[in-house]
Simulated assay, not measured.
Amino acid sequence: MIEHEPPKEQVLVVHEGDLRATVRMMAAARLIREHHRKARITFLTTPEYEGLVKYCPYFNAVETTLRETAKKGFIERVKLARASKFDFVYDLCASDAARKLKGAMRLSRGQWIDSAPDPKSPDHPSEQIADQLGRAGIGRTGHRLGEAPPPMLDWVDFVAKRSRTLEPAYFGLQDRYALFAPAGDEFQPAFRWPKERWASLAHALKEQGVEPVIVGGPSAREIGRYIAHVTPGARDLTGRANLVQLAGLGRKASFSFGEDVDLLHLLVAAGSSAVMFHPGAEAPHMASPRGPESVILMHAPTLAQISVAEAVQSMRVAGGFARSPEAA
């Protein structure tokens, strides 16, 4: 008599958001995968960051039709929910599209689990999500600040084995380098470290044998060009690397610097220690990037008050000079 294996558990993870929310989501995805080890996990999201999440090992499939599904009529959404046969649905975003999906899923067999952070809460989103999952039986509850498992993009190493475009050498980087993730043109001047300070920091690192590398999207091209022009030897990669490549660079960087920009969250999760510049009288603990290495928050009423010497000293405290290119 032939014994048939029971059907695999079906799990759906729903998420949409900006890059920092997507990076934070990966900590939750890791916990869900560890809890549902043998399940088939589908990630339902939007197209913006498909190029990054499609390599994430926590999902068996990535679908980018969340918004299209939400736009369908209620009856059609109910039919899709019943046909999906998901056993568990984890909502990590609580967006309008997710709420519409939730209404349809209530009429299916799937168990809907709210795991999204509350934007009005004073707690860091990472602790909020970890506690939500704990209440659903995944891990524990009562995480204090800094205790939640951080997102870790260590899986990028496996992608790098198949593509040399993720290696620093692909961009001409051979020795120690530090990544600059400056705020782009869309940020108001009050939220940007002065470009002259960035250039002076690049010069200071060059004197220490660390190559400054400016990264970011199209909005950061102007400051990237400025730093590279003023500081010979600084390398401007703004607009030249995709998110997976940037994660690869973050894995082997000696250090990263940036304002409160989404890209810094990616670099930290990839494994880079970092300094984040933030205006204000208090350290922005609830907005800080999370990852396996140290992050130092430097704040001042105006960012111009943060000196290059202070930034370099913070880098030393976090162990930036001690990290070699092969450390990851």
Rank of each mutant, 00 (worst) to 15 (best):
Q10A: 15
A94Q: 07
H36P: 04
F88E: 04
R24G: 01
T65N: 13
R77M: 13
V14W: 00
Y49N: 10
R67F: 00
A28H: 03
R67E: 06
R33V: 13
L66Y: 01
G73L: 08
K79V: 14
G51Q: 09
K79Y: 07
M25F: 14
R33L: 01
L92Q: 01
F43A: 07
H35D: 05
K72W: 08
D96V: 13
A81P: 06
T42Y: 03
I75C: 05
R82S: 09
E34N: 10
I41T: 11
K85R: 15
D87K: 09
M25Q: 05
A94F: 07
E50K: 09
I32R: 00
G51N: 12
K8S: 15
I41R: 01
K54P: 06
V23A: 08
I41G: 06
V11A: 07
H36G: 04
T22V: 12
R20C: 09
T46Y: 03
E48V: 13
A70R: 12
K71R: 15
V53D: 03
A61Q: 12
T45A: 03
L31Q: 13
D18R: 07
S84I: 08
A61R: 13
A98E: 07
A98C: 10
E16D: 04
V53N: 03
L66S: 01
F59A: 09
H35G: 04
K8I: 13
A21Y: 04
K72S: 10
E63K: 11
E68C: 02
V78S: 00
E50P: 01
F74D: 02
F74V: 12
T65H: 10
Q10F: 10
V62M: 03
R40W: 07
K71P: 10
F74A: 08
I32P: 00
F43R: 05
T65W: 06
E16F: 02
K72Y: 05
T42P: 04
M26S: 15
F43E: 02
K54R: 14
V14D: 01
A28I: 13
A83C: 11
P47H: 10
R67M: 02
A28R: 00
G73H: 06
R40A: 07
T69H: 13
I32H: 00
M25R: 02
T64D: 08
H36V: 11
R24H: 00
F74H: 03
K85W: 08
P6K: 11
L52V: 14
R24C: 02
E48D: 14
Y55R: 14
V53C: 06
K71D: 15
S84E: 11
F59N: 03
I75H: 10
L44P: 07
G17M: 02
V11T: 09
S95K: 01
D18K: 12
N60R: 00
E34L: 10
A21S: 13
C56E: 09
Q10W: 06
C93D: 12
A28M: 12
V78W: 04
L80S: 12
K85N: 14
E34A: 14
L19K: 05
K8L: 14
L19E: 04
A28E: 00
E50C: 04
A81R: 02
R33S: 09
E68P: 03
E76N: 03
Q10E: 12
A81C: 09
E9T: 15
K85G: 11
A81S: 12
C93A: 15
S95M: 11
A81K: 06
H15T: 07
A70G: 10
